[in-house]
Each structure stands twice: as structure tokens, then as C-alpha cells.
Design a binder for these strands. Sequence first.
DNA 1: CCAATTCTTGACCGATCGGTCCACCATGAA
DNA 2: TTCATGGTGGACCGATCGGTCAAGAATTGG
Lengths: 225, 225
Amino acid sequence: MLCSVRDQFWNAGYAATSLQDLMRVSGLGKGSLYAAFGDKHELFLRVLRRYVASLDHAVRGSIDSAPRAVDALRSFVMLPVGDPAGRAARRGCLLANSTTELASADPVVAAEARRAYEGITAVLAEGVRRAQVEGDLSASVDPSGLARALLATQQGLTFMGRAGMDVETLAATAHSLATQLLPTAVDRRDSVDPPRGPGDPVAPAPGVPRSATSPTGRTSPSAAS
Amino acid sequence: MLCSVRDQFWNAGYAATSLQDLMRVSGLGKGSLYAAFGDKHELFLRVLRRYVASLDHAVRGSIDSAPRAVDALRSFVMLPVGDPAGRAARRGCLLANSTTELASADPVVAAEARRAYEGITAVLAEGVRRAQVEGDLSASVDPSGLARALLATQQGLTFMGRAGMDVETLAATAHSLATQLLPTAVDRRDSVDPPRGPGDPVAPAPGVPRSATSPTGRTSPSAAS
DNA sequence: CCAATTCTTGACCGATCGGTCCACCATGAA
DNA sequence: TTCATGGTGGACCGATCGGTCAAGAATTGG
């Protein structure tokens, strides 16, 4: 039920969603909606927080479960082009859309956005550190700095998708950016850095064949309904 | 006058701006507003198109007037952190905000956004080509591809600013991304590519000292009132 | 089978929305 | 001074907004 409400806010935005829309997609009467969730703003915050928690969980799980952290980082950047049909790309991200619409007028939403993005940055930075230990990223880069760059890049790609860029072009751009920000093993082969750190403390299978496509389990918050 | 209206839409968004707001910021009565600009949507489109034209003109002028095109490309990526106080960063970009809010419901705005971003991409690609001729960028990269990557990155930085990232962190992230996507002359010195193309057909001062800060004239559409 | 209780519903509220329209006034020509 | 005129402002319109509430349906305990 909350998923239908989330989709409504996701598709139309906060201001453009009326109580009638919420009644229609939820199947509940106006009074029931109010009794169950409070007013429109509270309902929106509830849906948004659920989405943020799902998003955070998905990113954390993707990075934690990836055999090589750098692959999870790459798949994070490629998230906006995960849907081959491009419908997900056209919707954008609920948190990003809500932040853009409400950040300057709704301090609660703004605070939620800050918290969420700081959390994701921390998770990404942890992934960067693991990728450094695994020898897939240069140890000289600042993990938090790269994490912020990855997040900003992913948000930019998400926006370009929402702005209507066709999916093939978007995918090519995402691939190019991911490659430039996260040089893979084959790219690093002709690098000046040693191809592998001292010992491989974490990497479970150092000789696993590398692939440009994201090998990690696909976890999209839009599917968590 | 239109600038005040633009700022109102910019700060509050389309749906959250009422006719009373427009009357207040414009100083005009409701009837006068309607007689002069038509309904709210038409007024918004007028303001948006003015903004897009100003933006396009600013980017084109910045690239055309830069002694080295790569500097203009760099300053384009750094645009979101142009305001030291961070107030401009917090507002975001009117076109980006409007696209995020209305893209899925207003085909006119969506088409305007596509057109604008395609135009900016073309201008950036032209800048990339010039930077390649000037020897500041590797000739092997696809100009349009790099242009799209620069645009997506800039939009991502713009969004992170709107999402509340503090200006110093944002500036550091922007600097890092610009450096990775646009290796400057000092970065290229240890590159495998020849440090300068055959002859210097366009570059007026090949030995001019390079600077990390944007040397091009600052042209921000928010100042075009 | 009935009654107490919980839950749902849609009518209703004042406020405000975007849009229309007409009385009014400032101006300029006669 | 008078009249014609065009631009202005605000009253007014129906529609819709978010929110409230009492009546009735559904459920449960006895």
C-alpha cells in the first residue's frame, strides 16, 4: 500500500499530488488516511524515510556482498541505467526529486536528504577503502573524496536520465564516467602503481575474471515494494 | 521584472508558486499579469526560456572567449561552486529544478530541457575539440562523450549543492572531478601522449602559466537580471 | 443473536487555487 | 475642459485544496 503512495509521490512530486490522488492509489478513504498516517506531509515523510532506508540498505548490501568492492562501486554509478527499458531512469530517484522540489522550503526533507547522502557517502568510502586493500584502487586517493565524487556523478547521471537523455547515451556516459573514476584491473595494468597491494587480505578470489558489467546482485529500491 | 518572477519560481518551484506570489514579486495586479503574459504556465515558460537562453549564451560565451578551451570546460564543471557564500549552490539551477519537478508531467518543459541540454552538450563538445587542437586534451577521446560526461558531472555537483553539501566539500569534490575528467597541462606532463599537437593552430599563448582556478570571465545566469 | 466497539466512509468545512471580468484612473488628443 | 482610450487593480467565479467529523458498516465478545 505504501508502495503505491510512494509511486504516486515519485511520479507526480509532492505538491502535485493531491489527497484525492492518495485516496485513489491507496484505496483508502480520506479519513482513514488521516487516521492512519496523519496529514499529507507526515505520510510523505513516512514514505520518503522508507525509501531512504531501502536505498541505504540496498547500497550497503551491494557493497558488502560484492566479491570485489570496486565492482559494487561501479554498479553504484551505473544504477541509473540499470533498467534496460529506461523507465526507471525517467523517474529518477524519489529522494533526489523530493530534495530538489522541497529542499529550500521543507527543513525536515532537507535534513533527511543530508543524512541520507552522508550515510551513502560513508558506505561508499568504506567500499573505496576495501577496494584499495584489494588492490583495485590506488591507495593514494582519499576514500571520502572519491566517495563524494562517485555520489555526485551518480546523481548527475540520474538527473540526465530524468531530463530525457536516451538510455543508450546515458549508459555510455555512465560507463565512461565509471571507468574514469574507477580504473579497473585491466586499466591499471599499465599504471605506475603496483598491480596488487602487499598480500590480498580480503579478496576471496584474486584471479577471478573481471567483467565490465556489474556482477553484484541487483538491488533497486524501486523493486522493494 | 521578469527576474523577480524567475527568482520566485526558482526559489519555490512551479507548483508551490501561487498567483498571489507572482503578483507580490512583480508588483502587478492579477489582470495585468494575465493580459501581459497569459496564464501561469505561459509566464513560467517565458521565464524558463529566458533563463535557458541566458544560460546557453553564458556557456557559449565562456568557451568562446577563453584563451584555452580546457579552462572554460573546467570552469563549467566548477560553476556550482562559483558563489563563495554557497547561496547560489543552494538554489541549484532553475532549469534543473524545473526539469526534476515537471519533466514527467509537462511535455513542453521536458522538450525545453532536452533541447537545452543537447545545445549545451554541443557547445561543450566544440570546446573539447578546441582543447584537443590546443593540445590540452588527448585527441583520442570522443568530444561528445566527454561533453556529456562533463554535463552530467556538473549537474550532479549542482544537485549536491542543492542537497545541502557544504560549500568547501562541494568545491573540493568539483575540483577533484574536474581534474580527473580534464587533466591539466601539469597533469599531462607525465602522460604518454605528446605534450603538444602538431603545431599550435589556435592557442594564442602556448606558454601562458596555467592556473587551477577558472580564469575565464564569470558569467552566471543568476546575475543576468 | 445481540450489543459494544472499532474502523471506514463520504459529506462537509473554510481557505485558497487559477482564471475572468469590469469599474476605475491616468494619460493624451481635441 | 472634455472625451476617448488603454492599462490597472481587485472583486468575483467555480473548482479544488487539505483537513474534519459524524453516520454507518464491519467485526468481535458475550
